[in-house]
């Protein structure tokens, strides 16, 4: 979709034009469903979160100034919606600092592992990578998604989740290790 068309849609959404809102939904719904599914294992709950997220987008779109791209802005809203949902449900461990200060000391072997792993996932189908990440425990999966995929810094993660920066770093390190182990284990079986 070209920029002028997106601009028209945004302006329409700001005026509460249902047709423009529908167009925006049709254009971004799949991508945002992908975001919600990355943060939430249950696809039905993810679907609900997409609904809630779009309602938030439509009510807050008047505050969108165009400093970042619409997609980035929307993604942040959907991530926040997912995190709010996780906060409400039983996944409170995501937002708690429990013994996370195990600083990762990487040796050459680990780096070697990661390089091998990088080559491995480069050729893997996206749905498979998605499944592997989803199989991680919630608190590691969230950090991996926020840092590696959505480009949050550790400071931003610590502020959003209310955890220490050290915890964020160690969880990320642990998430990577677990992901590598899982993929290696399963791929060697196959």
């Amino acid at each position: 979709m070209d920029k002028s068309k997106i601009y028209e849609i945004i302006e329409g959404c700001k005026k509460n034009d249902r047709n423009c809102q529908k167009l925006l939904f049709e254009f971004y719904s799949k991508k945002m469903m992908g975001v919600c599914q990355r943060y939430c294992n249950n696809s039905e709950i993810a679907r609900d979160l997409v609904h809630d997220g779009f309602i938030k987008v439509f009510t807050k779109i008047s505050s969108f100034k165009g400093d970042s791209s619409l997609e980035t802005w929307m993604t942040r809203i959907f991530i926040n919606t997912c995190l709010s949902h996780l906060k409400k449900t039983e996944n409170r461990q995501v937002f708690m600092d429990i013994d996370e200060n195990i600083h990762s000391i990487k040796d050459d072997n680990e780096n070697k592992d990661e390089n091998e792993f990088a080559v491995m996932i480069k050729n893997m189908p996206v749905s498979k990578i998605f499944d592997y990440i989803n199989s991680l425990p919630e608190k590691y999966k969230i950090i991996l998604n926020m840092y590696s995929v959505d480009g949050f810094s550790h400071k931003q993660i610590s502020e959003t989740l209310g955890i220490q920066i050290g915890s964020s770093k160690s969880r990320l390190s642990r998430a990577r290790t677990m992901l590598i182990d899982k993929i290696k284990h399963n791929e060697s079986k196959n």
């Binding site: 469903m33 992908g34 990355r38 780096n111 840092y147």
Partner: peptide, 22 residues
């Protein structure tokens, strides 16, 4: 490390465009 960068970049490349079914 370089390995971190590779993993993060690859994960970002592969997953940021991931689309779900709705």
């Amino acid at each position: 490390s370089k390995g971190d960068l590779n993993i993060d970049n690859i994960l970002k490349d592969r997953l940021s465009s991931f689309e779900g079914k709705i």
